[in-house]
């Protein structure tokens, strides 16, 4: 009975305050979309980093079957060549710059590739023998990349030496800056949302002051009096969060998935399913900000 009563109060409150409710929904929608966008950028960064990025700086790719570079004219790397590269890595001349290194076989390379490009159709057309084996080197000083490059790039069996950081670092810087901008905008919008929810609840409490006055007199509990107002705010904010989540999912699906992924087939993009990780976060955030702002408002404007 009490639940039915509270639900009735909520619907009548939402109807009476429709324009304010719509503005709360829109403001939380926009602010949480920005929060989600920052989250998506971070997800995309970790996607691009792949398996090795945080562990090593330099990759020495060995010749495979399909290698076309000059160093690979004699065909795929032989076990002897591989051994001599490994010996060179461990020789004092090189080892002084190297923290540690890993050998990634073609099978392992295929595993890591599958993980990174899980959302891309390219994964189906790649087989382990198409991917080069590699030595992944963690340098003591990342700036000493040149030395490694000069030492190894002309060795037989080496296709190429790549400094992965240099390739991706600038892109990541841009993406991180974009995240910061998104978070700042989101912060401003969240302040807006909190104030707007507060104002909405204030108006709602004012327009229903007769009812709440009588409720107090006949001994309705604080919960019954205040819950409809809190839930009004929370429901509008959650609707905003759901809209924001849907928007982010649509961006991942239709923009990243259908447009960008076709233009850049060799880039690993996040999948719409990964974006769904952000949904509980956004809804949780909307509940917290609506709950907090409505409780603060009610404490001031709806004495029990």
């Amino acid at each position: 009975m009490r639940l039915a009563f509270i639900l009735g109060e909520i619907t009548s409150g939402l109807r009476r305050n429709l324009s304010m409710v719509v503005s709360v929904i829109l403001v939380t929608f926009v602010s949480l979309t920005f929060v989600g966008a920052a989250g998506m950028l971070q997800l995309q960064i970790s996607q691009l980093k792949g398996y090795w990025y945080d562990k090593v700086q330099v990759a020495i790719f060995l010749c495979g079957q399909g290698s076309t570079s000059a160093g690979c004219a004699s065909g795929p790397v032989t076990p002897d060549q591989q051994k001599s590269i490994k010996a060179l890595l461990e020789s004092p001349a090189v080892a002084q710059y190297v923290n540690d290194y890993h050998f990634e076989s073609q099978t392992e390379a295929y595993q890591h590739f599958k993980e990174q490009f899980a959302n891309s159709p390219i994964v189906d057309s790649v087989t382990p023998d198409q991917l080069p084996a590699s030595f992944r080197i963690n340098l003591k000083d990342p700036e000493k990349y040149q030395i490694i490059s000069e030492t190894f790039s002309s060795r037989p069996g080496v296709e190429t030496v790549i400094d992965q950081r240099q390739l991706l670092e600038r892109l990541f810087t841009v993406m991180n800056q974009a995240s910061v901008v998104a978070i700042v905008v989101a912060g401003v919008m969240i302040v807006c949302a909190i104030l707007l929810i507060g104002t909405t609840i204030r108006l709602s409490a004012f327009s229903r002051r007769r009812e709440t006055g009588i409720m107090r007199l006949v001994g309705a509990s604080k919960l019954v009096i205040q819950l409809p107002f809190v839930l009004e705010g929370v429901i509008s904010a959650v609707v905003g969060a759901v809209l924001a989540s849907a928007t982010l999912w649509a961006v991942a699906k239709f923009f990243l998935g259908d447009v960008l992924a076709k233009q850049y087939p060799d880039t690993a993009f996040i999948s719409p399913a990964q974006v769904l990780i952000l949904v509980p976060l956004l809804i949780g955030l909307s509940v917290v900000l609506a709950g907090v702002s409505s409780l603060v408002t009610l404490r001031r404007y709806l004495k029990v």
Binding site: M1, I214, V218, V224
Partner: peptide, 10 residues
């Protein structure tokens, strides 16, 4: 109303 808000049943 006075009965609803203190949770009396219908």
């Amino acid at each position: 109303f006075a009965m609803q808000v203190i949770g009396k049943n219908r």
